[in-house]
Amino acid sequence: MFNKVAIITGAARGIGKGIAKQLVQDGYDVVIADYDLKTAQETAEELKSKGYKAIAVQGDVSDAQAHKDFVKAAVDNFGRLDTYVNNAGLCQVESIPNINKESLDKLFGTNVYGTVFGMQAAYEQFIKQDDGDKIRKIINASSISGHQAYDMLATYSATKFAIRAYTQAAAKEFAKDNITVNSYCPGIVLTPMYEQIEEEMSNITGAEIGEFLENFTETVTLKRPSTAKDVANFVSYLASDKSDYMTGQSVLIDGGIQFN
């Protein structure tokens, strides 16, 4: 019996690393795809030292060819592809009057183009495989900011709304091919990306480091920020057979910040 195979973009650290650590425990072989090859290799070696199968691949997700390379690495090393997790993302704190083409290109390039190109590469491979009625999975990273836009995070929010739209459209298009498409929508997750947001918020507003986190945590029903493990637990469900009848959904996993 072969293991399932997953590609996770942006998996060298943060939420992506948490997802990789969870999926190998679920029986997946994983491709750690990241722009930072050194850290990706460290993550892959960490998983391999525990007896799991993992490889690291470098690439810029805003480039469609990079996703094709990720898929080739998965097939060459593990023989197939079952799940593609479009996790890689960037955030930038800026007020609307200060938004420029450079920041738009950067965030839309990674967050939106990266998701679309990832879905295309996954779809192409899934169609090649003779999997019968087996359900294959595409899992995208949206956000609470994809359900409700936040001030100082307008462009980031716009990209996450776009990912929800692509998730819904792809779910409708790909259903006939036994491919489901869903997305996860985290809130505050204690990762290097959050540390960046905290620092940028502090620089702009003059607030002390930690003040933004403290104030935002008060809006969380469960009264704590989430960890990468919290998000990975839900992605584990989306990547499992238990979610085979679920598609086109963008689910909040935020400890109770928003209620939709």
Rank of each mutant, 00 (worst) to 15 (best):
D60Y: 05
D60K: 10
D60Q: 11
V61S: 14
V61N: 06
V61H: 09
V61T: 10
S62G: 14
S62N: 12
D63Y: 07
D63C: 12
A64Q: 15
A64F: 15
A64P: 13
Q65A: 15
Q65H: 09
H67W: 09
H67K: 14
K68P: 00
D69C: 00
D69Y: 01
F70T: 05
V71Y: 08
V71H: 11
V71F: 10
V71G: 11
V71S: 07
K72F: 00
K72H: 06
A73Y: 05
A73E: 09
A74Q: 03
A74E: 06
D76K: 15
N77M: 10
F78Q: 00
F78I: 01
F78D: 02
F78C: 01
F78P: 01
G79L: 12
G79A: 05
G79V: 05
G79E: 05
R80Y: 14
R80S: 15
R80P: 08
R80N: 13
L81N: 10
L81R: 09
L81A: 13
L81S: 05
L81C: 11
D82L: 10
D82Q: 06
D82F: 09
T83L: 04
T83M: 05
Y84V: 01
Y84G: 01
Y84E: 02
Y84S: 03
V85A: 04
V85T: 04
V85P: 00
N86A: 11
N86S: 13
N86G: 08
N87A: 07
N87C: 10
N87Q: 09
A88E: 03
A88C: 08
A88M: 08
G89S: 10
G89V: 03
G89P: 07
L90F: 13
C91D: 14
Q92P: 02
Q92L: 15
Q92V: 14
Q92K: 15
Q92G: 15
V93K: 01
V93R: 00
E94Q: 03
S95N: 10
S95H: 07
I96M: 13
P97E: 06
P97C: 01
N98E: 04
N98W: 00
N98P: 00
I99F: 02
I99P: 00
I99N: 02
I99Y: 04
K101W: 06
E102T: 07
S103R: 04
L104Y: 04
D105Y: 01
D105N: 14
K106Y: 06
K106G: 02
K106Q: 09
L107N: 05
L107R: 02
L107P: 02
F108L: 11
F108T: 03
G109M: 10
G109R: 11
G109D: 11
T110P: 07
N111M: 06
N111A: 06
V112D: 14
V112H: 09
Y113N: 15
T115R: 11
V116G: 04
F117Y: 15
F117T: 03
F117W: 14
G118E: 01
G118V: 00
G118Q: 05
G118R: 02
M119S: 11
M119F: 03
M119D: 12
Q120T: 04
A121I: 03
A121H: 06
A121M: 02
A121L: 06
A121E: 05
A121C: 06
A121G: 12
A121Y: 08
A122V: 09
A122R: 10
A122P: 13
A122N: 10
Y123H: 12
E124N: 12
E124I: 05
